[in-house]
């Protein structure tokens, strides 16, 4: 079952690129292993796309031969959707492209002129073409940018399947996509890689203020859906039951995401285990693990079976008198948490 090997598929260490006298990309150390899915995450202008273009050999001197590349804005050439789907593919790859176009829901538009396709249809066609390539490294630049939010999970699942054992680098600024897809997340700011780690490490434990700002203090809980109720699903995450927005079927492996700013902290009356009533569906008890002051905001990490971060103001902290080791209650509205389908492991 182990998909990720130890062998390096592509080493990006030392890649540099300057444009107009400004350093755009300056990667000290970064690689992607065979079978691994690496997400490059960062704000606009961080140099993510340029890094991918370097890897794909579109700029600079090295690389490109082994890389299947999906540009940020896939271009549709004159002719039908089918022509664009199969462009640049070998015969053996064409069959795969046809199958993938069906799974991505665009097999019905391949007879249409490419110029009449919507942005989402274009992106799916280009994605099918890129994934059909037999090149060992796949590089995707914002592959879900033009795809509606409600379809993203399905597309992520298809992509995960199609990649199988290939090394993959995905650029995104969508935290859900990053968390759902990544084996490792590399945070890129100002052309440099600032932190690399699992989604949980990066989103829950940013090593610098800069990375913290970029990742927005995301909580990621891994679990399996036990039941669904209208727009909500209930997810079992290592013994912790979590309600979140989601439409996946029971039994699906998901990751539940919610920002640290959406978590409300309550002091607990030691004489009562009653947490109190509010509209939130998620109420958990836990012990304060760590209190990290970052300027006017304070991040409080609470162990509720697994670590969950809450962001509160200094004023609130002082008012509640919380210190390390205290018992506290957390609440999170189900509508503030999202269950995203995890890419198959």
């Amino acid at each position: 079952m182990k998909r990720v090997s130890d062998k390096i598929a592509l080493d990006m260490s030392g890649l540099q690129w300057s444009a107009a006298g400004r350093i755009v990309v300056d990667v000290a150390e970064l690689d992607v292993k065979h079978g691994e899915r690496l997400v490059i995450f960062g704000p606009n202008g961080a140099g993510k796309s340029t890094l991918l273009r370097l890897v794909a050999g579109l700029v600079g001197e090295r690389g490109g031969e082994n890389v299947a590349y999906l540009p940020q804005r896939p271009y549709m050439f004159r002719g039908s959707g089918r022509r664009n789907l199969l462009l640049g593919l070998e015969d053996s790859e064409s069959n795969r492209a046809e199958v993938l176009s069906k799974r991505l829901g665009v097999s019905n538009v391949i007879g249409t002129a490419a110029s009449r396709l919507s942005g989402g249809e274009r992106q799916r066609l280009a994605l099918a073409r890129t994934l059909a390539s037999s090149r060992p490294v796949v590089v995707l630049d914002e592959p879900l940018a033009a795809i509606d939010a409600q379809d993203r999970d399905a597309v992520v699942a298809v992509v995960g399947d199609a990649l199988s054992e290939r090394a993959t680098i995905v650029v995104t600024h969508d935290e859900d996509v990053a968390a759902a897809f990544a084996d490792r997340v590399a945070v890129m700011v100002g052309g440099q890689i600032r932190q690399v780690g699992s989604p949980q490490e990066v989103f829950l434990d940013p090593q610098s203020e800069e990375v913290a700002r970029v990742v927005g203090h995301h909580n990621v809980l891994v679990g399996t859906i036990v039941k669904s109720d209208g727009p909500l699903v209930q997810v079992a995450c290592s013994g912790l039951m979590v309600w979140a927005l989601g439409e996946q079927a029971a039994g699906s492996d998901v990751r539940v995401l919610f920002g640290a700013e959406t978590v409300t902290l309550h002091t607990v009356d030691p004489s009562s285990s009653d947490v109190g009533k509010d509209s939130a569906r998620n109420h958990w008890l836990g012990i304060v693990q760590e209190v990290i002051e970052t300027g006017r905001l304070v991040e409080v990490v609470v162990d509720v079976g697994q670590p969950v971060a809450a962001m509160i103001t200094v004023g609130s902290l002082d008012g509640m008198g919380i210190t390390q080791g205290d018992s506290v209650a957390l609440s999170v509205k189900a509508t503030a948490a999202r269950a995203v389908t995890a890419a198959k492991q």
Binding site: L58, Y69, P71, P74, F77, G88
Partner: peptide
């Protein structure tokens, strides 16, 4: 040719002649 088209073109796994054919057709 649109910059996106040129970028996409150089990313294709085709021979230089094949690339030229696609580009020529695009600007026919």
């Amino acid at each position: 040719l649109n910059i996106d088209a040129r970028e996409q073109l150089s990313a294709f796994n085709v021979s230089p002649a094949g690339r030229g054919w696609i580009a020529g057709r695009e600007v026919w």
